[in-house]
Design a protein around this nucleic acid. Sequence first.
DNA 1: GCCAACGTTGGC
DNA 2: GCCAACGTTGGC
Length: 159
Amino acid sequence: MTNTKDARRFWLMKSEPDECSIDDALAAPKSTVPWTGVRNYQARNFMRDEMKIGDGVLFYHSSCPEPGIAGIAEVASATRADPTQFDARSDYFDAKSDPEKPRWLLLDVKALRKTRLLSLAELREDPELADLTVLKRGNRLSITEVNASDWKRILQLLK
DNA sequence: GCCAACGTTGGC
DNA sequence: GCCAACGTTGGC
């Protein structure tokens, strides 16, 4: 199987470092964390339909003093139900989700390494990254695709 | 804490 | 199925 449909793809995943930073992910067993709390259908569908084990992930810190890319990770599992949707004490509880037909999914993300913080400001300054989805105005999606050339460029900036 | 942008909800 | 109101995200 070598057609382009099966090529490795790349993603940017936002995490609030207060909840799960790149350090937290690296400290987890097997450096792997369940990506809990996605409550947006578009992001869920990316996980369910598009993301494959081994896909590259930019681990992005959001809602924090220094937002930006903080590490490199990879997709480490297929999707399964996100258990927090059924936990009434969880911030991510969803009373409308039927356990027989879970509305929200998660997948495992394996942290590979921490990088220097490539800040949002620095990303914006790079003309080569002009089409990076996370830089687009009004973007709020917690999972966005990164094209291969932007991925390459970002790894270069992180060297 | 502000607020722009965007997704979701629910009345009709 | 429209769309106004409301809630959330997330940088600043």
